[in-house]
Design a binder for these strands. Structure first.
Lengths: 225, 225
DNA sequence: TGTACATCAGTGAACGCGCGTTCACTGATGTAC
DNA sequence: TGTACATCAGTGAACGCGCGTTCACTGATGTAC
């Protein structure tokens, strides 16, 4: 492949920095230095820091959306003799976790979702809605079919419980990585983290799938209230 | 009561601002203006913005810890003919949610926990460990007794699932409030929010208790893996 | 083929602003002798 | 009781710094005639 253009190098550098430190904590001087590019090039190519951020997000949320939609759709065509609800939950949770922990792209997307959750600032959150919204719709549609007698409110709460969990578990891993570098005397580790990222992901996916299925069962089988 | 001192007014103003906007987004000029106090008074009384933040946190996390420890302890002395696990979960989740949504104190504490989760910056997170750590220990000890044959790893994951959920639900409400003011055309509302904060809290506590109990059942009754 | 002009990627230096912080100061209250 | 000094809460103005952004510019490539 040919060597990346200035614009691409800026996007690459910005992605890593934003993913690890968040929007405000990164200065465009850092980004320019990391990309080995002139400071003014950022404004030349992106007309400002904000817009660079949006472009970085667009570039990392789009593949995430495709992966998730594909994973959800794959459940549809699976053989009928397996419990579809479990497959659906595992596909949704697994794809999210793996995407978030396997690449800076994924980490950034997650960081953003988490960030927008606690402070929905700039136009960035419109992007989140735009790119992640369809995934949510698709997932909800499948859940509705698999849990036909469950009212909308319960379904929304179930999804809230799932999203809350995986954001927490993914952020937990992310912090673990960050803390390793700083090596202060304090330990963040509430949970043991398993043996490497592969091990951690497998544990989390398995736990979340079982826990969530149990939760759904408890929510849907009782009387409505 | 006597009129609050300059120091107290600074703490009060800083608490509200930090709780709603986070640490970096608030300038000490805003705080001083809101407290109707001279700018330099912040450094006179607190030797810097960072330390003011820490003092605000200390003031709001300490009562939170006491409430939570009391709620957990209350389960211990309850009559024996009720399911203790459900009481414990409900007490933990309910106290957290109610504290977080009923006062700026609580909201700030939650915001911090969430913030430290995604970016464990300054010494503030040491405070979180110090003040919230004992709550976690107490909760875990009770869980261990109620689920005697469950290994430590599973218990840690269960707590992760609980904490992830309530941070998500509390932040969701918080964002809802923030968005109301801005009134952009976009809607944040993935979930319907119920009729006021009382209604929302009741719904969330009920949902989370049932969902979590179901999840715990599913995790603990199957074979180990 | 040669000249004139337009477009475009990239550059170096500076600008203006808001930030947290500092400093010399005031005026009131308390304390020692 | 009176004087001298120390302590303390609070003040107004300025400082230095890093930030995102702007501006005039260069040099290379493409296009028209």
């Amino acid at each position: 492949m040919s060597e990346p253009t200035t614009k691409e190098r800026l996007l690459d550098a910005a992605e890593v920095l934003f993913a690890h430190q968040g929007y405000e904590a990164v200065s465009i001087r850092e980004i320019a230095a990391e990309a080995d590019v002139n400071l003014a090039a950022i404004n030349y190519h992106f007309q400002g820091k904000e817009n660079l951020y949006v472009e970085v997000l667009r570039r990392c949320l789009a593949p995430k959306r495709e992966k998730l939609l594909a994973a959800i759709a794959a459940v549809e065509v699976a053989t009928d003799d397996k419990p579809k609800l479990e497959m659906l939950i595992r596909a949704f949770v697994g794809t999210h976790i793996e995407d978030a922990l396997s690449s800076p792209h994924g980490l950034l997307g997650l960081h953003l979702m988490s960030r927008e959750m606690s402070e929905p600032r700039h136009g960035a959150y419109v992007l989140v809605k735009e790119l992640i919204g369809p995934v949510r719709e698709s997932f909800m549609a499948h859940i509705r079919i698999l849990l036909p007698d469950t009212d909308e409110k319960k379904i929304q709460m179930i999804i809230g419980s799932i999203v809350g969990q995986f954001i927490y578990y993914a952020m937990y891993w992310h912090n673990h990585l960050n803390m390793l570098g700083k090596s202060e005397e304090v330990e963040l580790a509430f949970m043991s983290l398993g043996d490497g990222v592969e091990d951690y992901m497998a544990n989390v996916i398995d736990h979340m799938t079982r826990f969530t299925l149990g939760g759904i069962k408890a929510i849907t089988e009782g009387g409505d209230a």
